[in-house]
C-alpha cells in the first residue's frame, strides 16, 4: 500500500512534527539515556562502607545499595495496576501547560489552536482506549465490545472518565434540535482548573484536548464523529465545559438499522 522509501503518515499523527516517526527514534540512542538514569559514580554519593576487621560480609552491602537506586522503568510496571499509578494533578498541569505553550507558538488563531490540541488529544485517546479495553476486558472470560452508540457514550462519560480523570462527567445530554448531536458536560474539568484564558484568546477552550480524546475513543470503537469543546460558563460553574459530539451520518443509519 505504501510506496517504498517514503513513509506515508496518517494526517492525525503528523501534524506537529515528524519527530514521532520511528526512523527518528534512533537519535535517542545510548549516550543521553545512560547518563540520565545511570547510577551515581561509585564513591561519590554512596560511600563504600569501610570493611571492619570483624567481618568481610559487610562488603556485600555495596552492590545492594547500588541496586536499590535503580528506579523501576515504566515498561516494567504492570499495565493493569491502577491504584498506585496515579499522576499528580500538579505534574499533569505543568506538562499540559507546556503543551499549550508549545502549541501556541505554532498556530494562527483560535480555530487552528483548538484543532492542534484536538489532534494531540486524539493521539492520547487512541492509547487510552486500548489501555482501558485491556484493563477492563483483558481478564474477562467473554470480552465484549459495545456496538450501540448510547451505551458507548455512557461508558465514556461514566466509566472511562472516572478511570482517566478520577471523576465521571456531570451530565450527558442529547441535543433537542439536532438528532446527530450529543453533549458531555463537565462542571469543573480538572485539566483546565488552573488555566485562565486571556482576553485576546476569546473563546478558546483548552478542553479541545479532551474533545480529541473522546473523538479518538469513538473513532476507535467505530463511531466516526466530529468532537469539539466549548466553554459554557454559568453563574455557579464559571469553568463549565461542554464536549459536543457531532456523529457521522453513517453511524445514525447503522443505529437505525440495528433497532
Amino acid at each position: 500500500m505504501y510506496t517504498s522509501g517514503q513513509a506515508v503518515v496518517h494526517p492525525r499523527l503528523s501534524v506537529l512534527s515528524t519527530s514521532s516517526l520511528p526512523s527518528e527514534h534512533s537519535s535517542l540512542g545510548t549516550a543521553s539515556s545512560t547518563t540520565r538514569f545511570s547510577l551515581p559514580p561509585s564513591g561519590s554519593s554512596t560511600p563504600v562502607p569501610m570493611p571492619t576487621s570483624a567481618s568481610t560480609l559487610s562488603l556485600s552491602k555495596t552492590p545492594m545499595t547500588a541496586v536499590n537506586l535503580v528506579r523501576p522503568n515504566i515498561y516494567d510496571r504492570p499495565l493493569n495496576k491502577t491504584r498506585t499509578s496515579e499522576v499528580s494533578l500538579a505534574a499533569f498541569t505543568f506538562l499540559f501547560s507546556e503543551m499549550i505553550q508549545y502549541t501556541q507558538k505554532r498556530v494562527n488563531g483560535v480555530a487552528d489552536f483548538e484543532r492542534k490540541l484536538n489532534t494531540l488529544g486524539y493521539r492520547m485517546g487512541l492509547k487510552m482506549l486500548e489501555l482501558h479495553a485491556w484493563r477492563t476486558e483483558g481478564t474477562s472470560k467473554a470480552p465484549k465490545r459495545e456496538t450501540r452508540f448510547l451505551t458507548v457514550l455512557s461508558t465514556i462519560g461514566n466509566v472511562m472518565w472516572k478511570a482517566f480523570f478520577g471523576r465521571a462527567m456531570d451530565a450527558i445530554q442529547k441535543s433537542v434540535t439536532k438528532d446527530d448531536e450529543f453533549m458531555l458536560i463537565e462542571n469543573d474539568p480538572a485539566i483546565t482548573k488552573f488555566i485562565s484564558i486571556s482576553k485576546d484568546m476569546g473563546s478558546l477552550s483548552c478542553s479541545a484536548l479532551t474533545a480529541g480524546v473522546v473523538e479518538a475513543i469513538l473513532d476507535g470503537l467505530g463511531f466516526p464523529a466530529r468532537v469539539t469543546a466549548h466553554n459554557v460558563p454559568t453563574e455557579a460553574n464559571p469553568n463549565c465545559t461542554t464536549i459536543l459530539i457531532k456523529l457521522d451520518r453513517s453511524v445514525l443509519d447503522r443505529e437505525e438499522a440495528l433497532k
Binding site: 498541569t93 505543568f94 507546556e98 501556541q104 488552573f194 488555566i195 485562565s196
Partner: peptide, 15 residues
Amino acid sequence: KNPFHTPEMPIRTER
C-alpha cells in the same frame, strides 16, 4: 500553572 502567563511579567490572570 497558567500557560498564558509569562513569568516575571505583570499578572493578568482572572482566576
